[in-house]
């Protein structure tokens, strides 16, 4: 299924403000293409090229992979919804799945000596390290990543 990015100028914002919406089937093969599709919209503007290349791409890849693997349980019929709000001061990225949610505070620290050599369990830690703010919905099935301008 081809990914289709919906782009619209923000109704309430300034000239440089825009919103993006993208539905991603829950197959990990879509993560890379979805990330590139969204990152391409930030070639100039609110975020520096370096932050787009690394912080935005990595954080979005983490959020999508978590939603597909844990929220949708790899069921490609289930869609993960991505909504991006780009403004003059910040970019907010909402990633929502149709799963049961989870308790982010229950995820153990992957840098503890006993967990360092584990293959998995670093996603949330990496994500929190790369953006300025992370918020979860009460149900735990939607995450909002904030990257401030710069």
């Amino acid at each position: 299924m081809p990914l289709r990015l919906d782009v619209r100028r923000s109704a309430t914002g300034g000239e440089s403000d825009f919103e993006l919406a993208l539905d991603v089937p829950s197959d990990l093969g879509y993560v890379g293409p979805a990330v590139e599709l969204i990152a391409d919209r930030f070639k100039s503007g609110v975020l520096s090229p370096r932050r787009v290349r690394f912080n935005l791409r990595t954080a979005l890849a983490e959020a999508l992979a978590n939603a597909i693997a844990y929220g949708s349980r790899h069921d490609p019929r289930r869609l993960v919804h991505v909504r991006v709000e780009a403004g003059r001061d910040a970019v907010h990225i909402h990633v929502t799945d149709a799963g049961q949610g989870f308790d982010p505070d229950a995820v153990p620290d992957p840098t503890l000596p006993g967990r360092l050599e584990r293959e998995d369990g670093r996603g949330l830690f990496v994500l929190r390290s790369l953006v300025d703010h992370v918020a979860f919905s009460a149900a735990g099935n939607s995450i909002c990543l904030t990257l401030r301008a710069g």
């Binding site: 690394f54 791409r57 990595t58 890849a61 983490e62 992979a65 584990r118 670093r122 990496v126």
Partner: peptide
């Protein structure tokens, strides 16, 4: 360009 946590894993 970038490596995610799965890549690190």
């Amino acid at each position: 360009g970038y490596i995610d946590s799965s890549g690190l894993g």
